[in-house]
């Protein structure tokens, strides 16, 4: 298992390395001089040059790349061009909105999808199965930002149960903060739940057709035990794979959803940074998002090894 996990870890590190090169070189080709942008139109050429020197913009690309990487590794993300505050402060301020949002959405999606998937698989071909899979088919087709608009209309405008947007901050108390996150989380979660329910159902059906399930039933094991102990555990591998992919998707999805609900998260930060050409913020946020995705994928790989004992010895 160590070899297997080591291999996955190396792939994760390689992913981050490639991502950093791609992000760095993409932003390298963007037109516009950051120093001039920071100082505004009326700055003298001398002042711009002084700032360029201070920011190290005239150094060779390779040097700047490694300085940037070194900074990321020591949590020194540099200073935002427009806000003139350390990027780390900006990011930590926003991550406490985006990360809980993505995690609540992931939890909701899992809590809805896995029971629905199992329930449908158990009743394959019957009315309950047809209805829930029909609903899932529609759920997959719904764009999350449109679903968000519908939710705002129903629960915020019409029923006035929750705010239509904005975020009071965690300092306002857990409950008001959660209340502001609940609609965005549902909007993100439901389309993902539809995908997950379909995957769970087909993984369960695949397993339920196996000989060992028939054997377990034939020897008189209670249906519930067969389902939960034998079938679900074996069906978990594809489900876990999708869960890992979904986290990446949810994290990226928060970018659009945060714009629908005016939430001050990483998504809105990255949008503002892009329009203001605040490249150092863009670079840092993108790398942070990719790093979160890589970590979650590693956790998924680790969970494979827990679910499937064969992986612990074979690879």
């Amino acid at each position: 298992m160590t070899a297997y996990l080591l291999k996955r870890l190396l792939i994760g590190i390689a992913t981050l390395a490639v991502a950093s090169i791609v992000v760095f070189s993409m932003l390298e080709i963007v037109p516009g001089d950051p120093a001039r942008l920071m100082l505004g139109m009326n700055a003298t050429p001398d002042a711009v040059q002084a700032l360029r020197d201070q920011m190290g913009l005239d150094q060779p690309v390779i040097v700047r790349y490694f300085e940037w990487i070194g900074g990321l590794l020591t949590l020194d993300f540099g200073k935002s061009y427009t806000y003139s505050v350390p990027v780390l402060d900006l990011v930590t301020e926003r991550v406490v909105v985006s990360l809980p949002l993505a995690l609540i959405a992931l939890a909701l999606s899992t809590l809805i999808a896995i029971p629905v998937g199992i329930f449908s698989a158990e009743r394959r071909g019957r009315a309950a199965d047809t209805i829930s899979m029909g609903a899932a088919q529609i759920g997959v087709a719904v764009p999350n930002f449109w679903f968000a608009l519908l939710l705002i209309y129903i629960f915020a405008v019409w029923l006035r149960l929750v705010p239509a947007g904005g975020f009071p901050g965690w300092s306002a108390g857990i409950w008001p903060a959660l209340k502001a996150l609940i609609l965005p989380a549902i909007a993100l979660a439901l389309p993902q739940a539809a995908i997950l329910a379909r995957v769970t159902r087909s993984a369960m059906l695949e397993v339920l057709g196996e000989d060992y399930i028939r054997t377990a039933r034939a020897k008189g094991m209670p249906r519930r035990t067969v389902l939960w102990r034998h079938a679900l555990r074996n069906a978990m591998i594809p489900v876990l794979t999708i869960l890992g992919l979904q986290f990446a998707f949810l994290l990226a999805g928060t970018i659009i959803i945060e714009n629908v609900f005016y939430l001050p998260g990483l998504g809105r930060l990255i949008f503002q940074a892009i329009t203001q050409r605040d490249l150092i913020v863009v670079e840092s946020v993108v790398m942070l998002l990719v790093a979160m995705v890589v970590v979650v994928n590693l956790l998924v790989d680790l969970s494979y090894a827990i679910v499937d004992p064969r992986l612990r010895t074979n690879r």
């Binding site: 990226a252 970018i255 990719v290």
Partner: peptide, 12 residues
Amino acid sequence: FAFPALLSAIII
């Protein structure tokens, strides 16, 4: 694959 496609699309 590990890149969130939507995020990259937004940046591109």
